[in-house]
């Protein structure tokens, strides 16, 4: 029995964990690409009290927010193949549902859960922009679409940025649950490497380090972008 940490393994596994970063980022980016526009549109339906859609987003948010992501993963990972195989059998499509790359399930779960969070982020951010901004834009002849794009969204985005950053970082961390559906991301890769020699402590330290580096970089990027967005607030005369 060796004493202390196995440093060689620690260093080797760090790079194994690191090799999961592209998958983690890929899932994160796809989820954001779906959730940002969808969350924004659904937030608009809530603010403008659009019938039906407004109710839909409200119920959607409380369902997704009120359930652990791991359960959402289990449900999607278990039920979607069932539904698909029924569908494929019925229409004689020759695809084996169990050959589907789990990344597709990851896209579904994380897009859905991030959308719910971003609906609330955008809703609160949009409500901080005074109604007078829209009225002023209309009064100088801008359409609603132009007013949102040029006046309201830039201001709401400044308010939303810290929360979007939090949502993104939470999303990156949540993708670690992807191991439950054998998604080849950071956590799974390091854990698998640890299985052979029971070097779990080393593997967990590596996972820890990779996430903290990744999340710090993302936070730093957001901070820079936010600073650029909000220059109108603190510009010196």
């Amino acid at each position: 029995m060796s004493e202390g940490l196995n440093y060689t393994f620690l260093i080797d596994t760090f790079f194994v964990a690191l090799s999961g970063v592209p998958i983690t980022l890929f899932v994160t980016i796809v989820a954001l690409l779906v959730a940002l526009p969808l969350g924004f549109l659904l937030a608009l339906t809530r603010i403008n009290q659009v019938p039906v859609l407004n109710w839909f987003s409200r119920i959607y948010v409380s369902f997704v927010r009120g359930t652990p992501i791991i359960i959402q993963i289990f449900i999607v990972y278990a039920s979607v193949p069932l539904i698909l195989s029924l569908f494929f059998n019925r229409y004689n499509i020759n695809i084996n549902v169990y050959d589907i790359n789990p990344i597709w399930y990851a896209f579904i779960v994380f897009s859905f859960s991030t959308t719910a969070i971003l609906i609330e982020v955008f809703r609160s951010a949009l409500s901080t922009v005074n109604k007078g901004q829209l009225e002023a834009a209309q009064s100088v002849g801008l359409s609603n679409f132009q007013a949102y794009r040029r006046i309201i969204i830039p201001q709401a985005l400044v308010v939303a940025m810290p929360n979007i950053c939090t949502a993104t970082v939470n999303l990156i961390k949540a993708t670690s649950l992807g191991y439950a559906m054998s998604l080849q991301e950071i956590t799974l890769k390091a854990k698998v490497a640890a299985n052979a020699g029971y070097n779990y402590v080393e593997a967990y330290i590596d996972i820890f380090l990779v996430y903290i580096i990744l999340c710090s970089l993302v936070e730093y990027g957001f901070k820079l972008y936010e600073k650029r967005l909000r220059r109108y607030k603190y510009a010196s005369a």
Partner: peptide
């Protein structure tokens, strides 16, 4: 407008 409503950005 009473509250100016200048575009803040």
């Amino acid at each position: 407008f009473q509250n100016y409503n200048l575009f803040n950005n």
